[in-house]
């Protein structure tokens, strides 16, 4: 039996308008590492963590999915996420990357490189609230 893959969020489609924390508007394909860093600095609740890709493997449930294992933050906590193979992550200093960049470009028109073990992705955690 075939199951229709879930739709990707609309904001990854090329041309989508993204609002940074200072109010500036940019297209998703024009975002730079600094945009995320500066937005997180302004944010009172969110902070950026470095998440290093430790492993990428196919999902057991569907060929449309991959399981990406990250080492998150200075404590290197292990976090695994199951995502569509075309789901883009933002790699520090590099830009959008996915497990299957051809599919990302085909479906979203978002310029994308191949996500690889050792890549350092931008992720978010909560700032310590007191």
């Amino acid at each position: 039996s075939t199951v229709a893959p879930p739709a990707l969020p609309p904001y990854f489609i090329k041309g989508s308008i993204i609002q940074l924390a200072d109010g500036e508007l940019k297209r998703v394909e024009d975002l730079k590492t600094e945009d995320f860093i500066q937005s997180a600095e302004i944010s009172s609740e969110l902070k950026i963590d470095s998440s290093t890709v430790e492993r990428i493997e196919g999902s057991h449930t569907s060929p449309n999915f991959a399981v990406v294992q990250f080492s998150v933050g200075e404590h290197r906590a292990q976090v695994s996420v199951e995502v569509l193979v075309e789901y883009p992550f933002f790699v520090f200093g590099q830009g959008w990357s996915s497990c299957c960049p051809d599919r990302t470009t085909q479906l979203l028109e978002l310029p994308c490189t191949k996500l690889s073990v050792g890549d350092v992705c931008i992720s978010l955690t909560l700032k310590n609230l007191k």
């Binding site: 969020p9 609309p10 904001y11 990854f12 989508s16 308008i17 993204i18 609002q19 940074l20 924390a21 508007l25 998703v28 975002l31 945009d35 995320f36 937005s39 944010s43 969110l46 950026i48 963590d49 998440s51 990250f70 998150v72 933050g73 404590h75 906590a77 292990q78 976090v79 996420v81 992550f89 933002f90 992705c121 931008i122 992720s123 978010l124 955690t125 909560l126």
Partner: peptide, 19 residues
């Protein structure tokens, strides 16, 4: 035209506190 907040594009990876 919809406008999306920057943080919706970033995965929220919250490590569980082990200490």
């Amino acid at each position: 035209v919809p406008v999306f907040p920057w943080h919706s594009l970033v995965p929220f990876l919250a490590p569980t506190q082990s200490d």
